[in-house]
Structures are given as C-alpha cells and as structure tokens.
Computed example of a mutant assay.
Amino acid sequence: MIHILHLLGTVLGWLTIVVAALGVVYLTAAALVFRRYFAAATPAPARHEAVTLVKPLYGDEPRLSDNLASFIAQDHAGPIQLLCGIQRHDDPAIAVVEALKAAHPDAQIDLVIDGTIHGASGKLSNLINMEPLIRHDVVVLSDSDIAVAPDYLAQILRALDQPKTGLVSCVYAGRGDTGFWSHFGAAGVSYQFMLGLVFGVANKLATPCMGSTIAMTRETLRRIGGFTRFSDKLADDYAMGEAVRELGLEIAVPAMLVDHAFDEISFAALWRHELRWGATVRDVAFWPYVGIIIGLPLPVAILSMLYWPTVGLILCALAVVARLVVVRTVNATVGRRIAPLWMALAHDGMSFAIYIASFFVRSVDWRGATLTMKTEGRIVAAHKIQNAEQRA
C-alpha cells in the first residue's frame, strides 16, 4: 500500500509539473494569437437591413439604460426594432425601458410584459413570449448585460452574409460595474475565458455560440424550432448553436469585442455565477472542459511545489510572467485596463477552486431560482421536483 501511494504521489507530482509547464506555453501563445486575431479586424460599412434586437430583461442592473442605449446608437441606415421582454409588472426594468423610449422618441422600442411560463428557464419563457412580436427578418438576441460599439450591427450583418453562415456570435470582455467583486469577475472573463475562446476560434478548434450575441434570420430561427425548443435548456445559447449546425449551417465569430457587465457585490454572488458557468460548460462539453486546466498554470505550479519545490517555484515565476503578458495584451486590445495583474492572479486561484467544485455540482442558482441539471443539458426547477416527489 505504501508503495502504491508513493507511486501515485510521483505520478501526480509529475502531472502537475507537466500541466503547469504546458500552461505557461499556452498562455504565451494565446496572448500572441489574441493580438493577431483582433489586429486583423477591418471596418464594416453601414447597412440598410431591417433588424430586430431582442432583449430579455430582469431587474434594474446598474448600467442597464446605458447598455440598451448602445444598441440604439448604431451606425445603421435601416430600421431597428428594440424588443424588450419583462415577466413581472413590478419589475424595475420597466421604468428603465420607458425612460429610454422618452429619451429616444424616434426609436422603435417595444416592450412586452408577460409572465407566462413555458419551461424551467425563465429567460426562455421571456423570449418565447416576445417571439410573436419580432418584426424584421434579421434577429439579434443578446443578454441585458451586454454593451456594444456603434459598428456592432455592421460587423454582425457582414459576418451573417458569408456563405453557409447561419448564426453569428461575439467574443466579450468583462466590465466591472459595482466595485471590487464585479471587477474581480471581469478579470476572470477577460484574462482567462476570453483568451481561451479566441484561441479556439482563431485555430478553428471551436465555433461557440454565446448569449453575448446570437444573430440569425427569422427563417433560421423558425427552422430550428423557435425559442420554444430550448425552454428547458440551461445552456440555451449552446443548444441554439448546435441546432443551427444540425441544419448544415456554420457559426461565425467576427473579430469584434462587446462588453459584458458584471454587477456582483459579494464573493458569494460571484461564486454562484461562475460555478453555474463552470457546471454548464462541463455538461455540454465535458472533455474540452477537463482540458481548460491548462489555462491555470499558477495554481497547478503551486501544487507542484509539494512534489519538487525548486521546479515548482520556477514554474510559479514563469506563470506570473505569462499572465502579465496576457493582461497587457488584452488591455491593449480592449483599449482600457480591465483589472490589475494581482487581481488576475488571484482570480486564477478562484477559477481553480471553481473548476474542482464544478465536477460535483448537480444544481445551480439562476436569478434566485434553484435549477437541477439533468441529462443532455436539460434543467428542472426545484419546485417542480418537489411537486413530483409529493405526487409520488
């Protein structure tokens, strides 16, 4: 038994060394790929197509009005419908939308207030209730915490024009809106998640579909079954992308960044948010998720010090330098400092803890509701499980 434990310790020790070393190489290479990917971006001319922008809303987020206004302030020559959906008549987001309509009287801003539930996902219920009011043939869905640049629609429409493209999605950088913990979350999504995302897209290893932008024609939306098909999906964005691929169409990710606003005001809120992300990705792409540990060389290098302190210390130093290269590259590309280096390094530690915990999670929190994860990415609300148990 002692011999087996010693052998296991040796294997794990060398594994941490190898993973940390590969992680240092990966971060450095990913920073270079990131810079080249966005350096290749070109301006897109204004377009004339009629577009419906679909916005499911819930609550008054810190900069909700600014986020929504950025979708109206587009360099776009055609009609734009901003379609907002809310599920409660007492939701403070209603006042935000009404104020936006008053501030932009010439804009086509429609508000749907409908609490009808169609499945476990409140967001999808909201979208299903809005779907009949979509006016135009190009549909662009995005989360309420997304803000965009004036050329957003021009870039989206140009990408959607490409042969065999059925859906367009966008890479996003983090933006902290409510103090320390929101900046902490923005550091993680910008210096870890976004980096890996661009690396996968640039090297044709992945073509993700994300809630930051899901743009398609209304005909494509009809062909994939409308929003109703995804009413019990936690990773509804991923499921929509898969449905589009089933049609033989492709997903395009243009070299353009949008902002994803973080509004967490506590460690607990951020932990729940990121744990939901981790568990969701684990369920829809298990083996790629296992491999993302390579993007966290610092925590792994610290573990390697338990086996070989000298080598582990060297790897820690190299991991810090690699993360510094990432931070500077991302900041230069985005055009602002998202978070300090020490915050990026600290978030590596939190990400490692989230990574481990995510393999043991079977239920997640979503806007105060507990959702139990089932097979094939399905979710069931906790109250439905309780009712089923009572009937049994």
Rank of each mutant, 00 (worst) to 15 (best):
G185P: 11
S65A: 15
Y26N: 10
L371I: 10
A319C: 10
S266L: 11
P79M: 10
P208H: 06
G377W: 04
S212P: 12
T329E: 13
K123P: 07
M350G: 00
M256P: 01
G59R: 01
F180C: 03
I251N: 11
Y289G: 11
V300E: 02
S266M: 15
F262Y: 15
R367M: 13
A44V: 03
H183T: 12
P288D: 08
G225S: 08
L111K: 02
I251E: 10
A21N: 07
M240S: 04
L345A: 05
P92S: 09
A95V: 03
N203A: 11
R378E: 15
G226Q: 09
I385S: 08
T280F: 09
E389C: 12
M256C: 05
A30P: 06
L124S: 01
S212K: 08
F71L: 12
I94G: 01
C316M: 13
T165L: 01
D236W: 14
I134Y: 06
G179H: 06
A346S: 07
V139W: 01
R337E: 15
V112P: 14
L197R: 13
E264N: 15
M216S: 10
R391I: 13
A154G: 07
T280K: 12
G200F: 03
L257T: 03
V258T: 14
D90Y: 01
A20Y: 06
C170Q: 05
R229T: 15
W366R: 07
R323K: 15
D91C: 08
A382N: 14
D91P: 07
P62E: 15
L234W: 11
V11D: 00
T217E: 03
L270H: 15
F359V: 04
A30S: 14
N67R: 04
F38M: 03
A369N: 09
L53W: 03
S142V: 01
Q74F: 00
Q386Y: 04
A285T: 12
A392W: 09
G9C: 01
L306Q: 01
K384V: 09
L313I: 09
N129R: 04
L306T: 00
S351I: 08
A332P: 09
A102S: 14
F267V: 09
L141S: 05
Q390D: 14
Y152M: 05
Q87R: 13
